[in-house]
Amino acid sequence: MRAVYLTGPTIYLRALQADDKDVAMAWHQSPFPIDATRAEQILNEVHSDPWDSREWLLAIARLADDAVVGSVRIYFWRDEASVRVHTAPWVTDADAVQAEALRLVLPWLRDERERLLIELNLPADQPATLAAAEEAGFTARARLREYFARPGHRVDLVVYQWVHPIVEAAHA
């Protein structure tokens, strides 16, 4: 069930489905483990109504073998959207996967879904992901110091936003 409009050079985004309960740690955006039963509950909760567009959770799948390697969670609020990207704990090129996922989802939200404001909070130590946000026209507007814990050090969180030109003009 590939969506042709959300396919990149090495990955594609798709809706989650029932079988994905068996690979929950690849798409569940938490470091805490869940079993297939809990994963099934979450899938049912997230997909309880096809017309409910307050929250979407999309799988990031690899084109080469269809393996789920992460997820994109999109929260909608009024004309705004916020995006969270996650990669499976075993993925070794997380920064590259996240960057490619953002190159798919951000232009789609910006140009096709016509959101007025899109927000993205990213760790400052993922250069490819940050570059993908900036390529999509996102601007770093705030920086929270030492937000993320890393082994032996901490990393800032950067708040990126894309603002529709009509809103930007009205703000001026």
């Binding site: 009024r78 705030a142 009205a170």
Partner: peptide
């Protein structure tokens, strides 16, 4: 608290965002 930045919102007051 230290200033960390200024973000846009769709909240309006007195006719502007």
């Amino acid at each position: 608290y230290r200033d960390a930045g200024r973000v846009k919102t769709l909240g309006r007051k007195e006719g502007r965002f």
